[in-house]
């Protein structure tokens, strides 16, 4: 993947989309082969080096993995833990730090008025947007997004994809998103990679694909 590139990963359930993203952020050790992220191999690095690499990679997980009993502001701030000291992280739980950044991130996703609410009180779509805001404050060079729009209505889904694309482009970084909506993939990504049973079966510029073609691809693998 090149800097500034936006890549959609498509494929049926179980094709290996989430595993691919997990291998890239270093939470899943590869069984064979390897990846290089920002010039390093997450499976080979340890300790501080690994943390530095991971802090440059922002992930929106399929199940969001927000901490329910924590207020929204802390869940958003959790995106910066990679660059915060433990003492600062502790202080921020009492008196939240960096409120301006948090507020502006939440404004971008339209949740500024829910900043101090407990996260488990939010609806599924709202939580998805909190996860988005968490990645926005992290300012990573590479954004990994596992179904980032699954619980959003079409307008919000478009907005979310646009934000993620901008986030990656602003910093000269890249976006790797697994998507199940072919239209969204074509509208917001430069390149489409199709997976089936863990193998790449499609790799083409989005411009060269038409919606019916991609839908047919989904049809085939389903």
């Amino acid at each position: 993947m090149a800097a500034g590139e936006r890549v959609a990963v498509v494929g049926a359930s179980g094709a290996g989309k989430s595993t691919l993203l997990g291998v890239v952020n270093g939470s899943v050790p590869p069984t064979a082969g390897g990846v290089r992220v920002h010039g390093g191999d997450p499976a080979a690095l340890r300790g501080r080096e690994l943390r530095r690499l991971r802090a440059r990679t922002g992930t929106i997980h399929q199940h969001l993995e927000l901490v329910g009993p924590l207020r929204v502001v802390h869940n958003v701030n959790a995106g910066r833990l990679g660059s915060w000291s433990a003492a600062r992280a502790l202080r921020s739980l009492v008196q939240p730090h960096g409120l301006d950044d948090v507020r502006s991130a939440l404004e971008q996703v339209g949740l500024a008025d829910r900043m101090f609410e407990r996260t488990d009180r939010l609806s599924g779509g709202e939580r998805q947007r909190v996860a988005l805001a968490r990645v926005l404050v992290q300012r990573p060079d590479l954004v990994l997004a596992d179904e980032p729009a699954s619980a959003l209505d079409p307008a919000l889904a478009d907005e979310a994809m646009r934000l993620l694309g901008e986030l990656a482009a602003d910093r000269g970084g890249a976006l790797l998103a697994s998507l199940h909506d072919p239209a969204l993939a074509l509208r917001h990504c430069d390149r489409v990679v199709g997976l089936a049973a863990g193998r790449v079966v499609l790799d083409a510029p989005a411009a060269s694909l038409t919606l019916p073609e991609l839908e047919a691809f989904y049809g085939v693998v389903r």
Partner: peptide, 27 residues
């Protein structure tokens, strides 16, 4: 999940536990 996600975004183990485990167990 939250704890693992924080580790994946570069947080140290102590900090990740502080944000990802402790609040859920706090009650």
């Amino acid at each position: 999940g939250g704890y693992e996600a924080l580790l994946a975004s570069g947080a140290g183990r102590g900090t990740a536990a502080l944000y990802g485990l402790l609040p859920q167990a706090a009650g």
